[in-house]
């Protein structure tokens, strides 16, 4: 019982434990899978990433040299990163920030 009382009193004087998001960014771990990013110029538009994606988040068109990911459909699994032959995909450690509008991340070669 006294352990909890001690905690209760400590909690009264300690600073707040929550983060004032979005004004303070959320800390993320090293090598966290935050948001998918592409190192554009390396991409050869082979489409392997879109075939491996379990969430159908990536669309690749070889003819138009167009690569596009829907960050709100992507589940940050990393299957596309594993299969990419050019190793041009990767993750940012920062999580996708809160936004008012949904928009896709695109790249045209």
């Amino acid at each position: 019982m006294l352990t909890m009382l001690k905690n209760a009193i400590l909690n009264l004087v300690k600073p707040s434990a929550t983060i004032n998001y979005p004004f303070t960014p959320i800390p993320s771990a090293k090598e966290a899978r935050g948001a998918l990013k592409i190192d554009g110029p390396l991409c050869i538009f082979c489409g392997l990433c879109s075939k491996a994606c379990p969430a159908q988040a990536i669309q690749v068109s070889r003819a138009d040299k167009h690569w596009e990911v829907d960050p709100y459909q992507c589940v940050n699994c990393g299957a596309c990163v594993d299969v990419c032959p050019k190793k041009c995909l990767g993750f940012e450690e920062k999580y996708t920030a809160a936004a008012q509008k949904k928009s896709n991340v695109e790249f045209n070669g």
Partner: peptide, 15 residues
């Protein structure tokens, strides 16, 4: 949870 995030890269759905 933070340890799991550090190990796997995500807090849940570790992949």
């Amino acid at each position: 949870m933070e340890l799991l995030e550090y190990i796997s890269g995500n807090r849940v759905n570790y992949a």
